[in-house]
Design a protein around this nucleic acid. Structure first.
Length: 296
DNA sequence: CGACGGCAATTTCAATACCC
DNA sequence: GGGTATTGAAATTGCCGTCG
């Protein structure tokens, strides 16, 4: 058996020309070094050093073996330096704030991959509303937050996107309309409306306001998207929801595209003016890599 | 999956040999 | 006699299979 200690010993003996000094340098006893060297030579089947009086010098075959040993130890040192240079970013905790839907859909694959690449970094995910994400970011209480439609200057990492769609009862007059035609925000705002917020301030009402409109007949306002679908099935009104919230079972419902299309973009955003920690930078880099890979 | 025991490899210690 | 290498025995360490 040979281990790294043996190869260090070979190099040390070559450097010092003396087993005693070599043993001291690598932290062995002299007799141990002598035995180890003898064992190596026996294992290799060649004599690496000739023992002369007061000197231990390399043999002809010993010289290239020693050179290879130096290369090997040099490569090991390079590996050490590589690991040392990235070690600070291999440990730590990332506090991430997000609203529930993104936490359940876009983030799990990203976080799974991140956990595989950086097992020493713990990601603590806080499930909050979009307003609360902004509050936590502003207070510096989280390292990164998922924000809807962030301003370009916030240096956001795009996480995903989806479109708003109208959902009407299957028997509704709008349900007869072809999907390519779509329905406008203006048309919807005049109808009996089931307003679902999903716990976000960006919802059908804020979209209408942004377009200079107003929801004229909100029959009921609920937090859960699923509750809204139930109420739409009951013919209480129509609703406007993000596409990703649509249920698998759409019986009794009809989904119509919004015209013109309105999208929401989810992005990872850092607290303002904050330099990302190495761990957060690793997460952003991974996000950029996966985004790059999927848009190629 | 952790505790445990057996076994082999390795290291240490002490004694000895060799050479200048 | 001092410095260095070698040898044999004992101690230590690490690995691996088994068991609960």
């Amino acid at each position: 058996m040979m281990n790294l200690m043996h190869w260090r010993l070979v190099v040390a003996v070559a450097d010092h020309g003396n087993i005693t000094r070599a043993a001291e340098r690598i932290g062995m006893t002299q007799s141990g070094a002598s035995q180890a060297l003898a064992l190596m030579e026996e294992t290799l089947g060649v004599q690496l050093f000739s023992r002369e009086s007061r000197q231990t010098l390399p043999t002809a075959i010993g010289l290239p073996v020693i050179e290879q040993a130096r290369l090997m130890l040099g490569a090991l040192e390079t590996i050490r330096q590589t690991v040392d240079s990235v070690r600070p970013m291999l440990r730590g905790t990332i506090r991430l704030a997000s609203f529930p839907m993104v936490l359940a859909s876009f983030l799990p694959p990203l976080l799974r991959q991140f956990n595989r690449l950086y097992p020493g970094i713990e990601v603590v995910a806080l499930e909050v509303s979009d307003d609360e994400v902004e509050t936590l970011l502003a207070a510096g209480l989280v390292d990164v937050g998922v924000v809807l439609n962030p301003a370009p200057e916030r240096n956001a990492g795009p996480l995903g996107r989806d479109a708003w769609v109208a959902v009407v009862p299957a028997g509704h007059p709008l349900a007869l309309r072809g999907t390519e035609q779509g329905v406008s925000l203006q048309e919807l705002s005049a109808l009996p409306f089931v307003l679902a917020t999903g716990g976000c301030s960006t919802n059908a009402r804020s979209l209408a306001v942004a377009a200079g409109l107003q929801l004229q007949d909100v029959r009921v306002e609920v937090r859960e998207w699923s509750s809204a679908f139930t109420l739409v099935r009951e013919n209480l009104g129509v609703t406007l929801v993000p596409e990703m919230t649509l249920p698998a079972d759409r019986q009794g419902l009809r989904v119509i595209a919004l015209a013109p299309r309105i999208e929401r973009v989810f992005s990872l955003v850092l607290p303002a003016g904050q330099t990302p920690s190495p761990a957060v930078q690793a997460l952003l880099d991974l996000l950029a890599d996966t985004a790059h890979a999927t848009t190629r």
